[in-house]
Design a protein around this nucleic acid. Structure first.
Length: 506
RNA sequence: GGCGCCAUCGUCUAGGGGUUAGGACACAGGAUUCUCAUUCCUGUAACUGGGGUUCGAUUCCCCAUGGCGCUACCA
């Protein structure tokens, strides 16, 4: 059995795209599942559109997604292959085709061709290159070349083949008639080969066994197969993945969606969640599992369970998966991740997020670290995105004596509380706290037992006391548990906040 | 326009010749809790249409329809 080799084929013409990430992921999962390997191939033949910054963004994005899993996504590749550095290789093959009269120079200008294209459109016919230069006089061609006239190199479509059929690993047999094709351009010139040509040479040189890519490449496949055959190369197995779609079912695009992986990362989504979510967009196991570790994904992945139809990118599901991953974390991990998040360059440099972590004091100080960890523990399971955390922590750091909030929130129908009754409730709570024994351990659990008992004695409802107390402690109607708040603030700070509440209500 | 691909709840999907068409997200209601969140329970909600094949099609075949993709000297 031949070795399984796949390629990651990003084109550095934009920031690391969610769709690219999904393609890379599926290639990775497939290769790992088969104990094969993956090669990073930067498809940067288009010099005008390719940019170094995008290349770096893609490479680092792939690392970011893999890192969280303890997986080095590039480990199985010795290096990154750049198509832009392989022009010499392509040139040899180009010259070979030219010499064998399998390819030819074409001097038709884009303008000329466009006119024909529009004409065909009007006549409701498919446009085909009219083969003007297919059998042109050699000396004429040479003269034009010598004169430096602009030309391209076209592949001479074989006339003895009527159709191309290939077996797609996700779609089954796909057939395209050769009459649908024309003498397509394979290079701008000897030094600038184009995509459809380069990938064939590369796939062969790299011994690629499986080409896993987006559905938008189906129509390129027959052209490539023609070239594979022309050179006598082994034809890899193709697998065309369903597209990721906008809400309106069009191909996922910048105009209608966030498409850059960095955007999602800086919105506080975990790489684990992103990968988990992406894996499920177009693929699934037949069981009902939704949350997968990378190991499980690798173990269970197979191309024959890849869906054929496109899938809409549903941010709500992503949020849910993200929260599931956050809930799975222990508090130390959460602490580390949140800090990493606040300190990541994208978040720091973004105007959108102003997380001033100096709020938490000097985080080399043991006491500050401890307090932050406790606060994070209270906030963790209610977090959907890391971007919410800072705001949710604010209440722990505001000045106790000058807490600001509207006393309207003391009103609660079900608890039968109001701004007026709050004074009684708060005095009651304060009294309990002030009269604690010196050796009373100020923990949520102890406090709960004590409060429940005292409230019962006084024949109040739990909520009648605890709800206003929450408001006084947090300055908000929604917060972590009241007893947990007491514990984290401790006796003294709690009393200050309660007094503040009483003042505000009077 | 031409060619190709695709088609199960709003979304992601399972399923498959005979099923109460299953799960998850979202949404709604309820239980628990001191609120929100969590957790638990319940509910609303789908096989695009028409022909075949068949005792029986949502499932297989064909057609139509619809959606999308490609239609570059981009990838």
């Amino acid at each position: 059995m031949n070795e399984i080799i796949v390629r990651y084929p990003p084109s550095p013409t934009g920031l690391f795209h969610i769709g690219t990430a999904r393609t890379v992921l599926y290639n990775f999962l497939f290769a790992k599942n088969k104990q094969g390997k993956a090669i990073m191939r930067m498809e940067d033949t288009d010099k005008t559109r390719s940019e170094k910054q995008y290349e770096e963004n893609i490479l680092s994005g792939i690392q970011k997604l893999g890192m969280a899993w303890g997986v080095d996504w590039l480990s199985s590749t010795d290096e990154v292959v750049y198509q832009s550095e392989r022009a010499g290789v392509y040139k040899k093959y180009l010259e070979k085709l030219l010499a064998e009269d399998k390819a030819y120079y074409c001097f038709s200008t884009p303008e000329e061709l466009n006119i024909l294209r529009e004409k065909a459109q009007k006549e409701k016919k498919a446009f085909r290159y009219p083969e003007t230069w297919r059998n042109a006089d050699k000396t004429l061609v040479q003269e034009k070349l010598d004169a430096g006239e602009k030309s391209v190199i076209r592949y001479k479509l074989p006339k003895d083949i009527s159709e191309i059929t290939f077996t797609d690993a996700v779609r089954g047999e796909v057939t395209i008639k050769l009459t649908e094709l024309d003498d397509f351009v394979i290079a701008k010139n000897l030094d600038t080969a184009l995509y459809n040509f380069c990938v064939v040479i590369d796939d062969n040189d790299m011994k690629i066994s499986h080409v896993i890519r987006g559905e938008d490449h189906i129509s390129n496949t027959p052209k490539q197969i023609l070239l594979f055959k022309e050179f006598g190369f082994n034809i890899p197995t193709f697998a065309h993945l369903p597209l990721i779609l906008n809400a309106d079912k069009s191909k996922l695009s910048k105009r209608k969606n966030k498409v850059s992986v960095d955007d999602y990362l800086s919105d506080g989504f975990l790489p684990e969640a992103l990968v988990n979510f992406l894996a499920l967009l177009g693929w699934n196991t037949s069981d009902e599992q939704e949350i997968f570790t990378m190991e499980e994904l690798i173990e269970k992945f197979s191309l024959d369970r890849v869906h054929k139809g496109g899938a809409i990118f549903d941010i709500e599901k992503l949020k849910w998966i993200n929260q599931e991953w956050i809930k799975k974390m222990d508090i130390s991990e959460f602490y580390t991740r949140v800090l990493e998040y606040w300190n990541s360059e994208d978040v720091k440099n973004s105007e959108k997020y102003n997380f001033d972590i100096s709020l938490f004091g000097d985080l080399n100080n043991e006491k500050n670290i401890l307090f932050l960890r406790e606060a994070l523990a209270l906030v963790k399971d209610r977090t959907k995105q890391l971007s919410e955390v800072f705001e949710n922590l604010a209440l722990f750091y505001t000045d106790d004596a000058s807490l600001e909030y509207s006393t309207d929130i003391y009103f609660h129908k079900k608890m039968k509380t109001s701004r007026e009754t709050a004074v009684e409730s708060l005095e009651f709570a304060k009294n309990i706290i002030e009269n604690l024994d010196d050796n009373f351990e100020f923990t949520a659990e102890n406090l709960k037992n004590l409060f429940i008992e005292k409230i019962k004695e006084a024949e109040f409802k739990n909520g009648y006391i605890l709800y206003p107390l929450r408001v006084a402690l947090s300055g908000s109607e929604f917060s972590p548990g009241t007893l947990e708040l007491l514990e984290i603030f401790g006796k003294e700070r709690s009393i200050v906040r309660i007094n503040r509440g009483i003042d505000l209500c009077k």
